[in-house]
C-alpha cells in the first residue's frame, strides 16, 4: 500500500490513487471512528497536494540548441507556437 508512504515522496498519480483509496475506505464506513479521523486528515492532505500539483500547470516551451556534433548544449525559449 501507499498508505504509509511519505506524502512528499509520492508521485502525483500515487497521491491520486491514495486519495481514492482513502475516500473509498471512508465511504465504506467500516473504519473505526478514531481511525476515520486520521484517515480524513490524510485525505485532506492528499487532496491539498493534488490540487497544488494541478494548479502549478504552466506551459514552458524551449528548443534544444545543438553544437556542431549534434550534442545538446543548451536551450532557447520558443514563443508563438
Amino acid at each position: 500500500m501507499t498508505d504509509d508512504k511519505d506524502l512528499a515522496q509520492m508521485s502525483f498519480e500515487e497521491a491520486l490513487r491514495a486519495l481514492e483509496d482513502v475516500v473509498a475506505k471512508l465511504e465504506r464506513g467500516d473504519v473505526p471512528l478514531d481511525q476515520s479521523i486520521s484517515l480524513y486528515e490524510r485525505g485532506a492532505a492528499l487532496r491539498a497536494r493534488c490540487e497544488a500539483k494541478l494548479k502549478e500547470a504552466e506551459e514552458k516551451v524551449s528548443k534544444i540548441t545543438l553544437d556542431g556534433t549534434g550534442a545538446a548544449i543548451g536551450s532557447t525559449p520558443v514563443d508563438g507556437l
Binding site: V23, L26, E27, L33, I37, G43, A44, R47, E51
Partner: peptide
C-alpha cells in the same frame, strides 16, 4: 477533469467522515 475529480474527492471525504460519525 482531474481537478474536478480531486475536488469531488474532497466532498466525498467530508461526507464520508460525517457519515462515519
Amino acid at each position: 477533469d482531474i481537478l474536478n475529480w480531486v475536488q469531488d474527492c474532497g466532498a466525498r471525504l467530508s461526507r464520508g467522515a460525517q457519515a462515519t460519525v
